[in-house]
């Protein structure tokens, strides 16, 4: 009974693959393959009062190789859960997630997470944290150290190799976390509100630096955020989610030129229109926390 209700609800809310915001010209045709496929995924949690809570309802989503995709939604819409399912940390109640066509059964070095809480190993130095992945992959110590030092320099922390995480600011910690994940060359970066715990200034700098790093090799990125500006600024595609139950409302292609410069973009009417339109859509839904 419950299941059929969910399915009925999902079928009525067919996800538009193109939005009314979609710009006229399609991006330069480039052969794309599906890096991640999320196929009719639902997630049910049991609350403490033993009631079923539908966190994700029949989500389907395809992320192309090399795409920067943001998942945007209010808190409690299950966007982080969706990311954890792709990471293999959480098994979906129904449906499957696939990576390069293979069903995801657990975490693996092809999908590297970056968490809002940094999750650095407090007992390891900056260098020790970054070297952890390569060493785990069987890279020789000297080689792993050389690679890690290069990465630490790339994220702008040269000279901090032997510091412990507790001695770093939040922004610096997140730089280390990014370097630690990049060190084992994941094909996909899974970023779970990575800049959510940072102050506005640090957040902006890290967004710019993340884009610069991303421009080098254009890894696939799945980026969870609740900031509309952040999503539009960074992404090729914004997946808008709604709450209770968490489902996809709309997928919006962000057709803005790259490489993006923040100062130019803020003045760009197209950027402004994306932001305003998305915010308006959330407002219309009345999808706020006061809802029981």
């Amino acid at each position: 009974m419950f299941v059929s209700d969910v399915e009925k609800a999902a079928s009525m809310n067919l996800m538009p693959s193109r939005s009314d915001l979609k710009a006229e010209a399609a991006p330069a045709a480039k052969p794309t393959i599906a890096m991640i496929e999320i196929d009719h995924v639902s997630q049910v949690f049991q609350t403490s009062s033993r009631q079923d809570h539908l966190a994700l309802s029949d989500i389907s989503l395809t992320v192309d190789d090399g795409a920067f995709v943001s998942i945007l939604g209010p808190s409690g819409c299950g966007k982080s859960t969706l990311l954890y399912i792709v990471g293999g940390f959480v098994a979906p109640t129904r449906g499957t997630a696939r990576m390069k066509g293979n069903p995801i059964t657990g975490p693996g070095p092809d999908r590297g997470p970056v968490f809002q809480e940094f999750a650095l190993f407090p007992w390891k130095s900056v260098l020790g944290n970054v070297m952890y992945g390569p060493r785990q992959q069987g890279v020789k110590a000297a080689e792993a150290e050389a690679q890690s030092r290069a990465l630490i320099e790339m994220v702008g922390l040269k000279g901090f190799e032997h510091f412990y995480p507790k001695e770093l600011s939040g922004g610096m910690k997140q730089r280390v976390a990014l370097a630690r994940t990049l060190a084992y060359h994941p094909a996909v970066l899974l970023m779970d509100e990575p800049f959510g715990a940072l102050d506005a200034h640090t957040r902006t700098r890290l967004q710019n630096d993340l884009l610069n790093i991303w421009e080098r090799d254009r890894k696939t990125v799945l980026f969870v955020t609740h900031s509309v500006e952040e999503a539009v600024f960074l992404s090729d595609k914004v997946v808008m989610m709604s709450r209770s139950p968490g489902r996809i409302r709309q997928i919006i292609d962000i057709d803005l030129p790259r490489p993006r410069r923040r100062t130019e973009l803020l003045l760009d009417p197209r950027y402004q229109k994306y932001v305003v339109d998305i915010e308006r859509m959330f407002d219309d839904a009345g999808d706020d926390e006061l809802q029981p």
């Binding site: 954890y84 990471g87 657990g106 999908r111 999750a119 190993f121 952890y132 992959q137």
Partner: peptide, 8 residues
């Protein structure tokens, strides 16, 4: 999770 993703 971080350690598992790094291949532990």
């Amino acid at each position: 999770w971080s350690a598992m993703a790094a291949g532990t």
